[in-house]
Every structure is written in C-alpha cells, then in structure tokens.
Nucleic acid binder design. Structure first.
Length: 422
DNA sequence: TTTTGAGTTGTTCGA
DNA sequence: GTCGAACAACTCAAA
C-alpha cells in the first residue's frame, strides 16, 4: 500500500507538471467507470489488460456496463498472455520451449516517448476528486525500509543496476551475500517500469558487451512472461495445485513450526534470514525464497498455500502470478516444477550461496560473531566457538526445530506414496 | 507416426 | 576429495 500510494502520488505530480491533472475516483470500477464515461461523453475507454482472474472478471463486467468501446492494451507482459502457442496451438507447459518460442515470436519495440505536454481537462469534465489516502489514516505504519514508489525511483533503480551489477548478473545473481540482483520486481509488478523498458534498456547495455549476462537477465524476464501465460490459461492455479495428486498430500498443521518459519526462529540461519528479510523490507532474495519455500514445504511439510499467502501479504513486489507459480514450482506441484527429489539442504545452500556469511550477519545479528565456517550451522559448532561468539543455543538462538536429514527422508517417503497411489 | 532426448535453480551415496 | 549415477513423470520438439 505504501509503494502504491507513493507511485500514484508521483504519477499525479508528473501529470500536473505536464499541465494536466490526475483525477482520482473511489468506488467499484463497474459503477465508477461507466458513470464517468457517461458524464464526460467519451468515445471510448482505454486501459491496460491484467492477467489475474480477478482483473479479467472486472474488465468483463466494466465492458458490459459501458455503452462505448472498452479497449484493453497489452503491456503487463512483453507478449500478450495467450499469444505464445506450440505447433498444436496449445499453451506451453514447459519453460524451455516456451522461452524459445517467445524469443522467436516477440519483437520488443522501444517504449513510446512520454508526451511533452498533456492538455488540461475541459472545465465541464472537472469534479472534486478523491484525495489520495494517507498511509497512517489506513492504519498502516510506514516502513522506511521499503523501496521508493514512482516512475522516477524505478528508473533510478534500473540505471543503478545496469551501471553497477548487471554485467556479472549471470554469475552473481544467486549470491545472497553480494545482493546484486536488479530489485526491479516491485516496479514490474506495479507498472512503475514496463517490462518493455526494462528489456530494451538491459539489451542496450548488455547484449553486445556482456552477452551471457543479457541472456540470463532476459531469461528471467521470460520466466515472468511464462508465469503470466500459464495463469491466463489456468486461472484455477490460484486455488489448486496444478498436479491434482497433491490434493492428497498429507500436509502437517504444525502451528509451532509455522510460527518459527514466519518469524525466523527455525534454527537454520539461512531460512531465518529469509523470514526476517521478508518482514523487514518486504523483499527476499530470489535464492533465499527458494530455500525458505523448500524448507516450509519439504522439511516442515506445511501446505505451500500458507507460505504463498504469507509471502503475498508481506512482499512489496507480491505478484499473484509470479508468487503462485514459484511456490508451486518449489513445492513440486506446478508447471515444469522442480523434481520431487530436489530437497534443499539449508546448511549446504547457505555455505554455497552466502560463503562470506554477510546475509546471515545482516538478518540474524545474534550470530554475527560466529566465524564463516560455523555461521551456517551453529548447532554443530564447538562449545568454545559458540562461547567466543556469545551464542547460547536455545537462548540467544534456537536449536534446529527439525532434523533436516530425517525430515528429508519422511518427505521422500510421502512423495513415493503419492506417486504409487496416483 | 513413433521414438528419443532433454529439460533453471540438488543431494546423497558409493566407487 | 572427486565424480557419476540415481532419484518420477511428463512435455515438447527433433530425429
């Protein structure tokens, strides 16, 4: 909400600077839009298409309620969601062929330039528009650690990424301690940056000089395309796993485990860092999202939908298509999902992707004084090492709430049962 | 038309 | 310590 209000505010200021005014109207789209269209005697209403089932339903109803054309334009993704089809005219279920087809079929044009001036609205169109609500009035405490909303801030983020870290993207994007990902997910979600702008700017900066980085970054944008395309053809994904046999997976209730996972007190440092980063800045590093999701669904065997909802609630970039697709991917029940035997070992993942321990030290400061060799597995450190770092297991930092080795074995057993009963 | 091989992100085990 | 195999089932495209 904070990012949204900042972004709308920034948009209003931009339009004001260009000589016009952004009108805000509150109410249900299906009532407000036709009413304004009638009052202003417009020839047509235009908007941008959204992939989410909710938005599709809303747009259908608005179109029906209007007596002028309602034109929707594709801009949420590079390719319109239903446009990439295989030879049998069906939608793709596997990423690689989708990506190949997408690269062949989609010619990305440069974004249109913003107009120099926007004419002010005619007098008879004006009305007393709703004020942009204040965050505090909505009962939401401001969070100074969130990214700044608005197009200008988005362009700054993009420029900084391209200048500083993009050239090593393919090698460093997984490193939790380096934290060199683009951080553009929030802008792509809210539209403060169009995927087209991101694509073209990155292509200009990288394609010739750093082809591997360009391939990898563009591949990530195509993953985003894939999630939207898949949801377009399968709206039921937002409620149900794609692989129906998961309907009978024996998810655990485990409230204690759930709360430890939410609050970052599982006793596995990298899992806890991810949980606390989510609550702290509404963002989680991509690699940490996977580790965290794997731990919830495979070590604790808690329904991925609970994790999905928790992420959606706290992520500033929370995006239904992407969040749902990726939770189902990690849980192994989605499109082109991770194979059942891929169970992340939280200790090994920490050592591999946070070798300097910087990620742990930032988000789990009570472990900061442990040496690199011990920081990913304090429960296995020697008493003298723990003492020197001021760590008292069970007091200053929890013991692991589950034994990973045992949890993995149980999970694999449940999965083999699932495939047998199918 | 059928077959075959490959496929974002891992881990463990045994040679 | 290193390395390859095994760990489903399925989709898709090339052979």
């Amino acid at each position: 909400m904070q990012f949204l209000l900042e972004s709308i505010g920034a948009l209003g200021e931009d339009i004001e600077r260009h000589g016009s005014h952004l009108f805000l109207a509150a109410g249900k789209s299906v009532e407000v839009v036709p009413e304004l269209a009638k009052r202003w005697r417009v020839d047509r209403v235009v908007g941008q298409r959204w992939t989410e089932p909710f938005a599709r339903l809303r747009d259908e109803r608005v179109a029906k309620a209007l007596d002028v054309p309602f034109d929707l334009f594709d801009g949420e993704t590079l390719a319109p969601p239903a446009s990439i089809r295989n030879k049998e005219e069906r939608s793709y279920a596997v990423f690689s062929p989708f990506a190949r087809a997408h690269r062949v079929a989609t010619h990305v044009d440069a974004p249109l330039r913003a107009p120099h001036a926007i004419p002010p609205p005619p007098e008879d169109v004006r009305f007393k528009d709703a004020a942009l609500p204040k965050l505090e009035k909505l009962g939401i405490p401001p969070n100074p650690n969130l990214p700044t909303g608005g197009e200008r801030a988005a362009k700054k983020r993009l420029a900084k990424f391209l200048e500083k870290n993009a050239s090593r993207y393919h090698e460093e994007r997984d490193r939790l301690d380096l934290d060199t990902t683009s951080r553009l997910s929030v802008d792509l979600h809210f539209g403060t940056l169009s995927p087209r702008s991101a694509w073209m700017a990155a292509k200009d900066a990288l394609a010739k000089a750093h082809p591997k980085a360009w391939h990898r970054f563009s591949e990530e944008l195509i993953w985003r395309e894939f999630t939207h395309a898949v949801l377009w053809d399968n709206p039921s994904l937002l409620r149900e796993p794609r692989r129906s046999e998961f309907g009978s997976f024996p998810w655990e209730k485990d409230d204690a485990g759930w709360h430890a996972w939410c609050n970052g007190t599982t006793g596995y440092p990298v899992v806890d860092a991810a949980a606390r980063q989510l609550l702290g800045e509404g963002f989680v590093h991509n690699r940490a999202r996977m580790i965290s999701a794997s731990f919830l669904t495979k070590d604790l065997r808690i329904d991925y939908r609970r994790g999905e909802a928790h992420y959606l609630k706290y992520l500033v970039d929370g995006d239904w298509p992407q969040n749902n697709f990726n939770w189902q991917w990690v849980a192994g029940c989605g499109f082109d999902a991770a194979p059942y035997f891929r169970v992340f070992n939280p200790v090994e993942q920490g050592k591999k992707f946070d070798p300097t321990g910087a990620y742990i030290r930032q988000w789990v400061p009570e472990l900061a004084d442990l040496p690199d060799a011990a920081i990913h597995e304090p429960s296995n450190a020697s008493p003298s090492t723990l003492k020197a770092a001021g760590v008292v297991l069970g007091k200053t930092y929890p013991e692991p709430i589950v034994d990973h080795r045992g949890a993995r074995a149980i999970y694999l057993e449940e999965m083999s049962r699932l495939s047998r009963t199918k």
